[in-house]
Amino acid sequence: MPVLQTKGLAIDFRGFRALAGVDLRVEAGVIHAIIGPNGAGKTTLFNLLSGLLRPTEGHILFENREITGWPAHAIVHLGLARSFQITSIFPHLSLLDNIRLARQSGTPLGYYFWLPETVLHRFDQDARTILESVGLAEAAGKPAQELSYGQKRALEIALTLALQPRMLLLDEPTAGLGVEDISRVVALIRQVARTRTVVLVEHNMGVVAALSDRITVLQRDAPSGRPAGVVW
């Protein structure tokens, strides 16, 4: 049984069909790469899977549960979390605060407006461990906006990992990184994939070859002008 499955998934942006007929099957415990040219709709697919966009047609099933049209926050709490191709962090908050926010979301603490924020220090040990795993331990107290590009990419992944999801959607985790950083990210993905399913969008074929168990090609079918998902 696949953990994640889409059936005939399609979305229109004001009449422009960005995705059509996507049938994706992701088996439990694998690293599943999704590749395709720019504009093929890979990020759009992630936006649909994570609930940031609603599909025009089709269904999404996660662990046999229909999650089509669910809001993003509810999908996260099922254990399906995603990272962003364009770094999406909280720039004015410290790295620790960034990670604390991710850890806090699994608890009702967010509603407790009568408690001092120091109660969030209970997540500090976790947060430091996570920051260490992506090589950011030294910068824990810095505002996120002061990080270098590569460090911001690492924080992007750390935020998603901090949610401790059962399934991870990583959107071009190595985009724009140098060789050294890439091998670090590859090692990290390999390590986290031991206990969870990973779907990986990647342009770097070396990374895809090194990591993936399965590959799906997403591309526009030129003759009919119709995009389609192809599974190998």
Binding site: L52, F113, L115, E117, L159
Partner: peptide, 25 residues
């Protein structure tokens, strides 16, 4: 200055990410 206040700041800083971290914005 509460855990709730932290979430408000997160929403103001980056609403999409707040949603993607599981907060019903």
């Amino acid at each position: 200055h509460s855990p709730f206040g932290r979430v408000l700041m997160a929403i103001r800083e980056n609403e999409v990410r707040a949603r993607s971290l599981g907060y019903p914005v």
